[in-house]
């Protein structure tokens, strides 16, 4: 028990030290924006379809459940507000982060892990190229940029999904849906979502590149590292989500 506690504590420390190394490598990496743009495409654009699809269905479910709940109090007209706040503040950032960990995080880990297993990272070091600057930092930065953008797309599609179900299917008045939303949702609600998704972007990207970079250089090691990326990213996302929510509500 104590040894397992010590092991997880040392892992947190290792990730923190790795973060410092990556941050130091980010400076030189920023001078080569093409590499970062390429990674935004890799992690962001390639996750777009799954994000949009999931956003649509999460929004539609919100429309159904929200309508059912609100109808019990006779306040169906607030459906727009409920769905939008739920998406912007919680579901958008969190579900996007979970999907990101599953789609982009695993891809990053296995890509970097395979580069480790096939000596590509060592080869770079032998060519006097620092893999942290050339490989890790661009992927880390790309993930951080992509996550809030993906969350924004998720929110937009989700709100339309809620509208689709609430207005077209359940019969909420369209004007009420949008005007109530416009009146009740403030800028700080949007900001809360952006801050959250940025934080999740750092967590998911960092864990993905960390696990890949430190994967055991075998097929089994890469597989294990990929699993650890999903598990660790998901757990950390939900834990940090609670902390951020509490901080925003000043509990």
């Amino acid at each position: 028990m104590i040894s397992r506690l010590a092991a997880s504590l040392s892992r947190i420390g290792a990730v923190a030290l790795f973060l410092l190394q990556v941050l130091a490598a980010c400076g030189p990496a920023l001078l080569r924006p093409r590499l970062i743009v390429q990674q935004v495409y890799n992690t962001g654009a390639r996750s777009l379809v799954i994000i949009m699809l999931c956003g649509l269905f999460v929004g539609m479910v919100l429309g159904l459940q929200g309508y059912d709940l609100l109808a019990r109090f006779g306040s169906e007209s607030a459906l727009g507000v409920a769905a939008t706040l739920g998406l912007l503040k919680e579901l958008g950032p969190v579900v996007t982060a979970l999907l990101f960990a599953g789609r982009a995080g695993t891809a990053l880990t296995s890509e970097i892990g395979l580069m480790r297993a096939t000596d590509q990272l060592t080869a770079m070091q032998m060519m006097a190229v620092d893999p942290l600057q050339r490989v890790i930092a661009p992927r880390f930065l790309g993930g951080i940029i992509a996550m809030p953008l993906l969350a924004a797309v998720f929110n937009i599609i989700g709100i339309y999904g809620a509208q689709l179900v609430g207005v077209s299917l359940m019969g909420v008045d369209q004007g009420t849906f949008w005007s109530q939303m416009q009146g009740a949702v403030a800028l700080h609600d949007v900001n809360e979502g952006i801050v959250k998704s940025a934080a999740f972007g750092v967590i998911c990207s960092l864990l993905a590149v960390y696990e890949g970079y430190n994967a055991e250089p075998t097929a089994a090691g890469v597989g294990l590292a990929t699993t650890r990326t999903v598990v660790a990213s998901s757990v950390m996302t939900l834990v940090v989500d609670y902390m951020l929510t509490a901080a925003f509500l000043k509990v």
Partner: peptide
């Protein structure tokens, strides 16, 4: 060390080409 490695070339067992 990096300056030294620029004066060296190394061929890895499996090539280690960037995929």
């Amino acid at each position: 060390v990096f300056a030294m490695r620029k004066r060296m070339g190394m061929l890895f067992q499996n090539g280690a080409l960037l995929t």
